[in-house]
Protein backbone atom coordinates (compact mmCIF):
# COMPACT_ATOMS: atom_id res chain seq x y z
CA UNK A 1 0.00 0.00 0.00
CA UNK A 2 2.70 2.42 1.03
CA UNK A 3 6.32 1.74 0.20
CA UNK A 4 9.03 3.96 1.64
CA UNK A 5 12.59 3.56 0.33
CA UNK A 6 15.54 5.63 1.54
CA UNK A 7 13.24 8.51 2.36
CA UNK A 8 14.68 11.66 3.88
CA UNK A 9 12.73 14.65 5.03
CA UNK A 10 14.33 17.92 6.00
CA UNK A 11 12.68 21.04 7.39
CA UNK A 12 15.09 23.84 6.63
CA UNK A 13 18.51 22.73 7.82
CA UNK A 14 17.08 20.17 10.22
CA UNK A 15 16.83 16.53 9.15
CA UNK A 16 13.58 15.15 10.62
CA UNK A 17 13.62 11.74 8.96
CA UNK A 18 16.74 10.07 7.56
CA UNK A 19 17.14 7.11 5.26
CA UNK A 20 13.82 5.57 6.22
CA UNK A 21 12.70 2.24 4.75
CA UNK A 22 9.32 0.65 5.40
CA UNK A 23 6.49 -1.10 3.61
CA UNK A 24 2.93 -1.00 4.95
CA UNK A 25 1.12 -4.11 3.73
CA UNK A 26 -2.62 -4.60 3.32
CA UNK A 27 -4.27 -5.61 6.61
CA UNK A 28 -1.25 -4.88 8.79
CA UNK A 29 -1.35 -3.04 12.13
CA UNK A 30 1.52 -0.78 13.11
CA UNK A 31 2.15 1.18 16.24
CA UNK A 32 4.49 4.10 15.74
CA UNK A 33 6.20 5.31 18.87
CA UNK A 34 8.86 7.79 19.74
CA UNK A 35 9.33 10.83 21.90
CA UNK A 36 7.53 14.08 21.15
CA UNK A 37 9.08 15.82 18.18
CA UNK A 38 10.70 12.64 16.92
CA UNK A 39 8.86 12.85 13.58
CA UNK A 40 5.80 10.61 14.03
CA UNK A 41 3.41 13.23 12.65
CA UNK A 42 5.84 14.05 9.84
CA UNK A 43 5.96 10.38 8.93
CA UNK A 44 2.16 10.15 8.82
CA UNK A 45 1.95 13.34 6.75
CA UNK A 46 4.32 11.78 4.24
CA UNK A 47 2.04 8.73 4.16
CA UNK A 48 -1.06 10.71 3.23
CA UNK A 49 0.68 13.08 0.86
CA UNK A 50 0.53 16.21 2.99
CA UNK A 51 4.32 16.42 2.74
CA UNK A 52 6.70 15.32 0.01
CA UNK A 53 10.00 13.57 0.83
CA UNK A 54 13.08 15.72 0.41
CA UNK A 55 14.71 12.70 -1.22
CA UNK A 56 14.08 8.99 -1.61
CA UNK A 57 11.15 7.11 -3.03
CA UNK A 58 7.65 6.94 -1.55
CA UNK A 59 4.86 5.19 -3.40
CA UNK A 60 1.20 5.51 -2.48
CA UNK A 61 -0.97 2.62 -3.69
CA UNK A 62 1.74 1.76 -6.21
CA UNK A 63 2.19 5.31 -7.57
CA UNK A 64 5.30 7.36 -6.81
CA UNK A 65 4.03 10.32 -4.81
CA UNK A 66 6.19 12.72 -6.78
CA UNK A 67 4.25 11.75 -9.92
CA UNK A 68 0.88 12.61 -8.38
CA UNK A 69 -0.69 16.01 -8.96
CA UNK A 70 -2.90 17.65 -6.33
CA UNK A 71 -6.10 16.08 -7.63
CA UNK A 72 -4.51 12.63 -7.67
CA UNK A 73 -3.28 13.11 -4.10
CA UNK A 74 -6.84 14.14 -3.15
CA UNK A 75 -8.12 10.95 -4.78
CA UNK A 76 -5.51 8.88 -2.89
CA UNK A 77 -6.61 10.48 0.39
CA UNK A 78 -10.10 9.16 -0.19
CA UNK A 79 -8.56 5.72 0.31
CA UNK A 80 -6.90 6.78 3.58
CA UNK A 81 -8.81 7.67 6.71
CA UNK A 82 -6.91 10.08 8.93
CA UNK A 83 -7.65 10.51 12.65
CA UNK A 84 -5.92 13.44 14.33
CA UNK A 85 -5.45 14.22 17.97
CA UNK A 86 -7.40 17.47 17.46
CA UNK A 87 -9.91 15.67 15.19
CA UNK A 88 -10.10 18.47 12.58
CA UNK A 89 -13.85 18.88 12.46
CA UNK A 90 -15.74 21.79 10.96
CA UNK A 91 -17.28 23.24 14.10
CA UNK A 92 -20.17 24.93 12.26
CA UNK A 93 -21.44 21.57 10.97
CA UNK A 94 -23.21 19.02 13.14
CA UNK A 95 -21.66 15.63 13.78
CA UNK A 96 -23.68 13.84 11.09
CA UNK A 97 -22.68 16.48 8.52
CA UNK A 98 -19.02 16.22 9.54
CA UNK A 99 -19.05 12.46 9.27
CA UNK A 100 -20.56 12.40 5.78
CA UNK A 101 -18.31 15.23 4.59
CA UNK A 102 -15.79 12.90 2.87
CA UNK A 103 -18.67 11.47 0.83
CA UNK A 104 -19.92 14.95 -0.02
CA UNK A 105 -16.57 16.24 -1.24
CA UNK A 106 -16.14 13.16 -3.42
CA UNK A 107 -19.72 13.35 -4.74
CA UNK A 108 -20.66 9.96 -3.28
CA UNK A 109 -23.42 10.88 -0.84
CA UNK A 110 -25.65 8.29 -2.49
CA UNK A 111 -23.41 5.62 -0.98
CA UNK A 112 -24.93 6.10 2.46
CA UNK A 113 -28.49 6.55 3.72
CA UNK A 114 -29.78 7.77 7.08
CA UNK A 115 -30.04 4.21 8.45
CA UNK A 116 -26.43 3.39 7.53
CA UNK A 117 -25.27 6.62 9.11
CA UNK A 118 -27.18 5.86 12.28
CA UNK A 119 -25.61 2.38 12.39
CA UNK A 120 -22.16 3.88 11.97
CA UNK A 121 -22.83 6.36 14.78
CA UNK A 122 -24.11 3.53 16.97
CA UNK A 123 -20.95 1.53 16.20
CA UNK A 124 -18.80 4.34 17.61
CA UNK A 125 -21.28 4.90 20.46
CA UNK A 126 -22.57 8.27 19.28
CA UNK A 127 -26.09 7.39 18.14
CA UNK A 128 -27.56 10.10 20.35
CA UNK A 129 -25.20 12.80 19.12
CA UNK A 130 -25.81 12.99 15.38
CA UNK A 131 -27.13 16.55 15.60
CA UNK A 132 -24.60 17.74 18.18
CA UNK A 133 -21.86 20.12 17.15
CA UNK A 134 -18.20 19.14 17.68
CA UNK A 135 -17.56 21.69 20.46
CA UNK A 136 -20.43 20.12 22.43
CA UNK A 137 -18.70 16.71 22.53
CA UNK A 138 -16.10 15.38 24.95
CA UNK A 139 -12.58 14.51 23.77
CA UNK A 140 -13.37 10.80 23.61
CA UNK A 141 -16.59 11.38 21.70
CA UNK A 142 -14.79 13.58 19.20
CA UNK A 143 -12.11 10.93 18.67
CA UNK A 144 -14.73 8.26 18.08
CA UNK A 145 -16.52 10.59 15.68
CA UNK A 146 -13.20 11.10 13.89
CA UNK A 147 -12.95 7.34 13.46
CA UNK A 148 -16.48 7.27 12.05
CA UNK A 149 -15.52 9.98 9.56
CA UNK A 150 -12.31 8.14 8.70
CA UNK A 151 -14.14 4.91 7.84
CA UNK A 152 -17.14 6.32 6.01
CA UNK A 153 -15.34 6.15 2.68
CA UNK A 154 -14.47 2.50 3.36
CA UNK A 155 -10.76 3.31 3.11
CA UNK A 156 -7.96 0.80 2.66
CA UNK A 157 -5.93 2.36 5.43
CA UNK A 158 -6.40 4.37 8.61
CA UNK A 159 -3.68 6.61 9.97
CA UNK A 160 -4.24 7.78 13.54
CA UNK A 161 -2.01 10.47 15.00
CA UNK A 162 -2.06 10.38 18.82
CA UNK A 163 -5.77 9.50 18.81
CA UNK A 164 -5.77 8.92 22.59
CA UNK A 165 -3.77 12.02 23.46
CA UNK A 166 -6.67 13.94 25.00
CA UNK A 167 -8.79 11.18 26.50
CA UNK A 168 -8.85 9.02 29.62
CA UNK A 169 -7.62 5.44 29.87
CA UNK A 170 -10.99 3.76 29.61
CA UNK A 171 -11.95 5.76 26.54
CA UNK A 172 -8.50 5.11 25.04
CA UNK A 173 -9.09 1.39 25.29
CA UNK A 174 -12.53 1.70 23.66
CA UNK A 175 -11.01 3.71 20.84
CA UNK A 176 -8.26 1.18 20.30
CA UNK A 177 -10.85 -1.60 20.23
CA UNK A 178 -12.57 0.21 17.37
CA UNK A 179 -9.26 0.37 15.48
CA UNK A 180 -8.60 -3.31 16.20
CA UNK A 181 -12.04 -4.24 14.87
CA UNK A 182 -11.34 -2.23 11.72
CA UNK A 183 -8.05 -4.09 11.31
CA UNK A 184 -9.93 -7.35 11.59
CA UNK A 185 -12.08 -6.14 8.69
CA UNK A 186 -8.89 -5.99 6.63
CA UNK A 187 -7.97 -2.33 7.01
CA UNK A 188 -4.35 -1.33 7.34
CA UNK A 189 -3.90 0.64 10.56
CA UNK A 190 -1.06 2.87 11.68
CA UNK A 191 -1.36 4.40 15.15
CA UNK A 192 1.19 6.97 16.22
CA UNK A 193 1.33 7.17 20.02
CA UNK A 194 3.86 7.72 22.75
CA UNK A 195 1.68 5.80 25.21
CA UNK A 196 3.59 2.53 25.71
CA UNK A 197 1.14 1.31 28.34
CA UNK A 198 -1.65 1.48 25.81
CA UNK A 199 0.43 -0.48 23.29
CA UNK A 200 1.24 -3.13 25.91
CA UNK A 201 -2.42 -3.59 26.76
CA UNK A 202 -3.58 -3.86 23.13
CA UNK A 203 -0.72 -5.71 21.46
CA UNK A 204 -1.52 -9.16 22.89
CA UNK A 205 -4.90 -9.05 21.16
CA UNK A 206 -3.56 -8.64 17.64
CA UNK A 207 -0.62 -9.19 15.40
CA UNK A 208 0.91 -5.73 15.41
CA UNK A 209 4.35 -4.40 14.72
CA UNK A 210 5.70 -1.68 16.95
CA UNK A 211 8.03 0.77 15.23
CA UNK A 212 10.07 3.42 16.95
CA UNK A 213 11.18 6.65 15.38
CA UNK A 214 14.24 8.11 16.99
CA UNK A 215 17.00 10.37 15.74
CA UNK A 216 15.32 10.48 12.33
CA UNK A 217 15.46 6.71 11.81
CA UNK A 218 12.86 3.97 12.21
CA UNK A 219 13.38 0.60 13.92
CA UNK A 220 11.42 -2.29 15.40
CA UNK A 221 10.77 -1.59 19.07
CA UNK A 222 10.10 -5.07 20.41
CA UNK A 223 12.73 -4.71 23.14
CA UNK A 224 10.85 -1.75 24.69
CA UNK A 225 7.81 -3.90 25.33
Amino acid sequence: MIKIQNVNYRYGARALLSNMNLELMQGSFHFLTGPSGSGKTTFLKLCYGDLQPTSGHLSLFGEPITDLNRDEIADARRRIGVVHQDCNFLDHLCLAENIVLPLRVSGQTARINAKDLQELLAWVGLAEHSQSFPPELSGGERQRAAIARAVIMDPDMILADEPTGNIDWEMSLKLMQLLVSLNKMGKTIVVATHDMALIRSIKPHLNARVLRIQNGGIQLAGADL
Binding site: R70, D71, A74, R78
Partner: peptide, 16 residues
Protein backbone atom coordinates in the same frame (compact mmCIF):
# COMPACT_ATOMS: atom_id res chain seq x y z
CA UNK B 1 -7.39 28.05 6.06
CA UNK B 2 -8.46 25.51 8.66
CA UNK B 3 -11.62 24.63 6.74
CA UNK B 4 -9.56 24.20 3.57
CA UNK B 5 -7.06 22.05 5.45
CA UNK B 6 -9.84 19.77 6.70
CA UNK B 7 -11.43 19.54 3.26
CA UNK B 8 -8.11 18.59 1.71
CA UNK B 9 -7.47 16.06 4.45
CA UNK B 10 -10.66 14.21 3.62
CA UNK B 11 -9.96 14.16 -0.10
CA UNK B 12 -11.50 17.35 -1.52
CA UNK B 13 -10.10 18.40 -4.85
CA UNK B 14 -9.20 22.07 -5.37
CA UNK B 15 -12.12 22.48 -7.77
CA UNK B 16 -14.56 21.45 -5.05
Amino acid sequence: VQVIHVLRLIGARDLY
